[in-house]
């Protein structure tokens, strides 16, 4: 008896146990116990994307390659791994898209997936700003101006300032609003846009800037935001209020962005700010499908992502589940002839 106790003690003393800081790898639930057979239900590239957890990732998903499926499975995977759904943020191009993805993830795994925060950049900005509006000098009950309303306000200011005279033509409300909006979304000074698109209005630069300033003041004093304000104000909130930035970055530990090829510079900056504590960002998109530059989207976001997040891992999805090979051949050929 004594002898055996003695032996066990020696065995223990031979094995050293030391305490280490956790590396952030989350295997709270062992993958062996997962309910979904990820490896069998996904192709190898999809599987690699779905099971990538920490750090920045870029998923280049060609048309029809099961991009939605991949996002749905990744949400389920994170939740199975033990990540709290509230700690996942899924940003999509339309709100319907995120609702649909989370619903599918819930069917795949369970109800927890519906608790993931999902929406568009604008709807996410809206709900965040409702909570923190006072920090930016707004009331929580601010209302949102659509494009038509915004143009009307610009027109009102233009008329009030008496800038349009018989002797001098002044840009119309649509032109002004387009200038302001593009300037914000592309982070380009109005004066640059003027020289490119409306060189004949260049000498009116000062007055055009004046209308812009008054327009901004007007919105603020009437508790109004246009679409661009939602993004700009969210960005300011994150930049200027460290506690809010920290709170949000701690809450959204895993960020996923769909259709990254159609995001604009502000949106990319918002992603960067939200992820500053952990850089757990997975962006999904297809540079070949970037088609929204007229709304300020820039293909550079997806192309420059690896420079923005230097240790980023790139995974490319190329197996198409939608079209016949005959159709894909034409599509491939169209791309192949693009300028390099």
């Amino acid at each position: 008896m004594v002898c055996s106790i003695y032996h066990t003690a020696t065995d223990l003393s031979m094995k050293k146990y030391t305490l280490k800081k956790p590396k952030g790898e989350l295997h709270l639930v062992s993958p062996a116990r997962f309910r979904i057979d990820y490896k069998n239900e996904l192709n190898p590239a999809q599987y690699a994307a779905v099971t990538s957890v920490n750090g920045p990732h870029l998923i280049v998903a060609g048309a029809g390659t099961g991009k939605t499926r991949t996002i749905v499975y990744r949400v389920a995977y994170l939740v199975e791994l033990g990540v709290k759904p509230e700690h996942i943020l899924l940003l999509t191009f339309t709100r319907k898209a995120s609702q649909e993805m989370l619903r599918r993830a819930a069917v795949l795994l369970d109800y927890r997936c519906e608790k993931v925060s999902g929406g568009t950049f604008h709807s996410f900005a809206n709900s965040t700003l409702r909570k923190h509006a006072n920090l930016l000098g707004y009331e929580r009950s601010f209302t949102i101006l659509d494009q038509g309303d915004a143009e009307d306000v610009v027109n009102l200011i233009r008329t009030r300032l008496k800038l349009d005279t018989r002797e001098r033509r002044f840009p119309k409300k649509e032109t002004l609003y387009d200038l302001y909006s593009r300037s914000i979304n592309t982070v380009t000074p109005v004066s640059n846009l003027l020289s490119i698109d409306y060189p004949h209005y260049r000498e009116l630069e000062e007055d055009i800037a004046k209308v812009h300033t008054v327009y901004d003041e007007y919105k603020k004093s009437h508790n109004l935001m246009d679409y661009d304000d939602l993004l700009v104000n969210l960005m300011r909130l994150l930049q200027q209020h460290e506690p809010v930035r920290a709170e949000l970055s701690n809450r959204y530990k895993y960020i996923m962005v769909d259709e990254f090829q159609d995001t604009n510079k502000l949106q990319a900056e918002i992603v960067r700010l939200l992820a500053y504590k952990h850089t757990n960002v997975m962006v999904v998109g297809d540079d070949s499908q970037s088609i929204y530059s007229f709304r300020g989207a820039t293909i550079r976001n997806i192309l420059d992502f690896p420079e923005q997040f230097p240790d980023c891992k790139i995974i490319t999805l190329e197996e198409n589940y939608r079209s016949t090979q005959a159709i894909l051949n034409v599509a491939n050929e169209i791309l192949k002839r693009a300028l390099d």
Binding site: S288, E319, S323, Q325, L328
Partner: peptide, 20 residues
């Protein structure tokens, strides 16, 4: 500066009829 991510789509579906 990067210009694009090269990808070639393929499928295990049938060849199908030619686009017109």
């Amino acid at each position: 500066m990067r210009h694009k991510y090269t990808k070639v789509l393929y499928t295990h579906k049938s060849e199908g009829s030619l686009p017109q």
